[in-house]
Write a protein that binds this DNA or RNA. Structure first.
Lengths: 206, 206
DNA sequence: CTTGACTTGTGACACAGTGTCACATATAGT
DNA sequence: ACTATATGTGACACTGTGTCACAAGTCAAG
């Protein structure tokens, strides 16, 4: 988490910082990015950066978390819109994440994040989705899902369903971005795989 | 790829290099690892390292690729053993990867690799599995799989099945390692999710 | 042997980035 | 105006990278 000093900053300066950081993390992975570049872009002295953030990671995960919050809101509203159909809702998130990554400034940030996705980064993304079975914080999601639709008998089993769907979703997001698939190609592949997930990988006659 | 000079090295010295590199990559992620530490451990001068490898990544991916080759052999033999049952074969790979990561020296290397897995690293792992539909290099795998068992009508669709299974498998591997699950707990979760994959996430009565 | 062509080894060096710290400056409450 | 507290600043020590000119080995041909 950024330090209090950062949040105390007047909106304008805070935005300059955010823009500069986002620019750097759009051009480079978390590990290749340099604080020095952010300083240069934002036009602030070295010491200041450390007044606001612990380090590079701190700034990165702040940006990422802000983004994840938006996605979460997105999912909630999609679940409502599609009356608890988890597949339709998640599919819309998939599309809008890809479309989002065609946007103006955001574009390369999300692209870069996906390309350099690791466990910690994925967790920041999906912390709003399913942290743990035991954790009750995600009731808002779980309660919205139409469980009747799913091949599960309790919330614990639903945890596994969410795990599977998010594994396949991330895999597809990353694959799409790193192979520069068009949105329609990406959607086609993703929908195909969601279809297989729904009906099962085993031939039912066997 | 390491340079020719590296492969020309006498076995003994080559092994010292490998051990030193593996040690460093067991303690640190690819990005936190330092060449300087490898030099210190191996007792070679700085210039020498660059005779053998392009850079840190080069050494890392050499080690990783060697490991991936073993896994590949493993999969082939498991497919034969289980008469083309993809699920049984992959499940054994899953178990042996976890067991492998309990081993002596290997232990933390694989652990570390999994914890810092990103797209490029995952690709090194699965390059032997399914690079692309069009690619014919993987016939040895595809031909061994009992396709009758699967809910697909052609090789192209089987590509998606492999994609899904590997997404879920990696996700479980990483989850197990980063949450320090016991092997039996990890297997239980993984088998549960494989079961869901087989029968489908949708309630069949719907 | 010994000469020369080629391969391999070596570590000092220039460069780039990090995080810190002592000091400077601003802001607000009394 | 005074003081306490928060914020700004950039020089500095430190760590690590990749390169380069030179040293040392190897080996085949004369």
């Amino acid at each position: 988490m950024p330090k209090a000093t950062f949040f105390n900053l007047k909106e304008e300066k805070k935005q300059i910082l955010i823009d500069a950081a986002k620019q750097e993390f759009s051009r480079n992975s978390l590990y290749d990015a340099s604080i020095s570049n952010i300083l240069k872009t934002a036009g602030i002295p070295r010491g200041s950066f450390y007044q606001y953030f612990e380090d590079k990671e701190d700034a990165f995960f702040y940006l990422l978390n802000e983004h994840a919050k938006e996605r979460h809101e997105n999912l909630i509203s999609n679940l409502k819109k599609f009356e608890g159909d988890l597949f339709k809702a998640i599919s819309e998130i998939f599309r809008s994440t890809l479309e989002h990554s065609e946007d103006t400034g955001q574009r390369d940030f999300i692209r870069n994040v996906l390309l350099n996705m690791n466990y910690k980064i994925e967790n920041t993304f999906s912390q709003y989705l399913s942290d743990d079975v035991a954790n009750e914080r995600y009731d808002d999601i779980y309660d919205l899902v139409n469980v009747e639709q799913l091949n599960v008998s309790n919330r614990k089993e639903m945890f596994h369903v969410v795990q599977i769907i998010s594994a396949v979703t991330f895999h597809n997001l990353i694959h799409s971005v790193s192979n520069n698939l068009s949105i329609s190609d990406a959607m086609r592949k993703y929908e195909t795989e969601l279809g297989l997930l729904k009906s099962g990988l085993l031939r039912s006659s066997s």
